[in-house]
């Protein structure tokens, strides 16, 4: 008996977005990263075309962070002391995108400065040929100062700048427009808020082809199902033809997972939790895998081992393309 595979005829397509610019395009990247453009749910190759595989980013910092898990210090080693070396290591680990997050302070505890940010961005751009994201420390006033400097330093590189949030997006969008970059919009797990922020950013004159949408996620066991459902609904709306939800999605499972107890704590936890290191890495890896299934186009990771594992999962799921 043959069973007909039911196919949904979607009318919408996820918008195609390209990060980074090569020398021909006015930048200095050795390659660019294109995400989006699919007209079906993740990995359903039998239904419609999925031209671009989901991409993997590795998060690095402008200086060695104070509060990361010892497992991450162990995994990265000395490169964490130098953002350029770290970026290079991320490239070697197989990242498609270097996700540089700025800190509020420099390593001696004094406030981060425009000069420092310019120097770091320059160094990282020189050290790697990958497209680069530059993300603020998360305080509006500081971000607006530092990101403007980063945007100017990387002019023409089609950086991804963030985070644009409902309360603070105008400065970031303005500097991104003036310096030919893209922006990451972030909203707290809500379909309508995600859509609204895209509209607001677009209203300022930023083309939709330069907006990547971050609907926010939680770690496995810490609200991932809520985030998953929001992403799924955003994607369904996009495929149904709702233009303002058609942005590719980026999420940060690395940041979320490495702050939960299951990943952070090695001692004093129930024995049934198993060994610390494999548990912690699995926590990030499984979260990332789930998010890719809910439609994430870019996931930002912290542990290099998950770069390998997630990549192999994506490769396998994308190779079924031929079988489709």
């Amino acid at each position: 008996m043959t069973v007909e595979t039911p196919k949904e005829a979607w009318t919408g397509t996820v918008r195609e977005v390209t990060l980074g610019a090569t020398a021909d395009q006015g930048g200095t990247r050795s390659r660019t990263l294109t995400v989006g453009a699919e007209s079906t749910l993740p990995f359903l190759h039998f239904e419609a075309s999925i031209p671009n595989p989901p991409a993997l980013a590795l998060e690095i910092r402008d200086r060695k962070p104070d509060d990361w898990s010892p497992l991450l210090y162990e995994a990265w080693g000395d490169v964490m002391d130098d953002p350029a070396a770290w970026a290079k290591a991320a490239e070697e680990a197989g990242a498609d995108l270097v996700y540089l997050v700025l800190s509020l302070t420099t390593s001696d505890g004094s406030p981060n400065t425009v000069e420092n940010v310019r120097a770091v961005v320059r160094k990282v751009l020189d050290a790697t040929g990958l497209p680069l994201a530059v993300i603020g420390a998360g305080q509006a006033e500081v971000d607006n100062e530092l990101l403007v400097a980063a945007a100017e330093e990387g002019k023409g590189e089609r950086l991804l700048l963030g985070l644009c949030e409902e309360k603070n997006y105008r400065t970031i969008v303005a500097t991104a427009m003036a310096n030919e970059h893209l922006v990451q919009s972030r909203t707290p797990m809500d379909v309508n808020l995600a859509k609204q922020l895209v509209i607001l950013i677009n209203d300022m004159g930023m083309p939709l082809e330069r907006i990547v949408m971050d609907p926010t996620t939680g770690a496995l066991g810490y609200g991932i199902e809520y985030g998953y459902s929001v992403m799924e609904r955003l994607r369904l709306a996009a495929l149904q033809g709702d233009k303002m939800t058609q942005q590719p999605m980026i999420v940060t499972p690395g940041e979320e997972c490495w702050k939960v107890k299951e990943a952070k704590v090695g001692e004093g936890v129930p024995e049934t939790w198993g060994d610390w290191e494999p548990r912690a890495i699995a926590w990030e890896g499984i979260t990332a895998a789930a998010l890719l299934h809910s439609g994430a186009n870019v996931v930002v990771l912290r542990h290099p081992e998950n770069m390998r594992r997630t990549r192999s999962m994506i490769d396998e799921l994308m190779s079924s393309k031929a079988a489709g």
């Binding site: 400065t171 303005a174 427009m177």
Partner: peptide, 12 residues
Amino acid sequence: LRSWGIQLVDGR
């Protein structure tokens, strides 16, 4: 122009 422009665009 860039410095003021950003402030005019973002509303400061």
